[in-house]
């Protein structure tokens, strides 16, 4: 009894209710659409139809089923998102270090960082493409650009959040700047760094898909736009929608897992 009660108030239960709620709403919408639109699968198909299409063995482009198309292109997109994410996270962290080390750099650089963040990806893509002259490189660059900002700002906040007494302790034993960073500031900023990584990991994936749509050469975004233009079954589109949502959530949890692995002291907390 106690266990049942615990389950119903648990975090898992919240998730279950939340997912079921969305499914119910979706299905209500699908029923309405099915009764009013001529090709309802273009607007809102039933969930079972999407699931069916995943397991369908029908070849949609002559050699692959819809799900095989999604998987083979996902590899490309996620690879580019991953590389961009790693580069962006690295640059973001270094930038935070630099901004914290040299006050004027923060004052000079920070406004530009915000401006870069405010340019829409679709506006930025042609500029990056003109610079890199390669669509695949620019996809990676754009994933990196979207990644570095949350990482840089959060890590910087982490450096700045260290209590005065901790600085004074280091000062009182005449620690060098290098020691203050390696033994105090960087370890303290780890939870903040991961907050940044958790925000930017799904963003890198979304950005990567979006930039895929701009040109050919494979990737989830390419397939997505082809599917929308009816070059192949619309269910490729729906599968990609769900697939990228799931991968985005998984990327968040991957960051949480890595965080737990690198910070054992927090594991006992939760």
């Amino acid at each position: 009894m106690q266990r049942i009660k615990k389950f119903f108030t648990s975090k898992q239960m919240v998730t279950v209710v939340w997912v079921l709620g969305i499914m119910v709403l979706w299905e209500i919408g699908a029923f309405i659409v099915a009764g009013t639109k001529r090709s309802p699968e273009n607007v809102l198909p039933h969930l079972y139809q999407i699931v069916q299409s995943v397991f369908s063995t029908k070849l949609v482009n002559g050699s692959q089923t819809a799900f095989q198309i999604v998987l083979s292109n996902a590899g490309l997109t996620l690879f580019r998102a991953g590389i961009g994410f790693l580069i962006g996270a690295g640059i973001g962290f270094l930038l935070a270090l630099l901004m914290n080390l040299v006050m004027p750099i923060e004052k000079i650089v920070f406004p530009y960082l915000m401006v870069i963040q405010m340019i829409p990806i679709l506006g930025m893509a042609p500029i990056i493409l003109a610079i890199t002259k390669d669509i695949n490189k620019s996809r990676i660059v754009i994933a990196a650009i979207l990644t570095f900002y949350p990482v840089a700002t959060n890590t910087l906040a982490g450096f700045k959040s260290v209590e005065k007494e901790k600085h004074e302790l280091m000062h009182s034993i005449a620690a060098t700047k290098y020691e203050i960073y390696t033994k105090l500031l960087i370890p303290s900023s780890i939870p903040y760094l991961f907050t940044g990584l958790k925000i930017s990991a799904p963003m890198a994936i979304t950005a990567s898909i979006l930039v895929d749509t701009l040109q050919g050469g494979g990737g989830l975004g390419c397939m997505l736009s082809q599917s929308l233009k009816h070059a192949m079954t619309i269910y490729v589109f729906w599968q990609i929608v769900f697939f990228s949502a799931i991968v985005g959530i998984l990327s968040y949890y991957l960051m949480s897992l890595i965080e737990k692995a690198v910070s054992p002291y927090k594991r006992i907390h939760k």
Binding site: E168, L169, K183, S188, Y265
Partner: peptide
């Protein structure tokens, strides 16, 4: 490094 300081809060490194 001839000072030892103890503050009001323990100021321990939680990691």
């Amino acid at each position: 490094k001839k000072f030892g300081i103890v503050f009001q809060s323990p100021v321990l490194y939680d990691w």
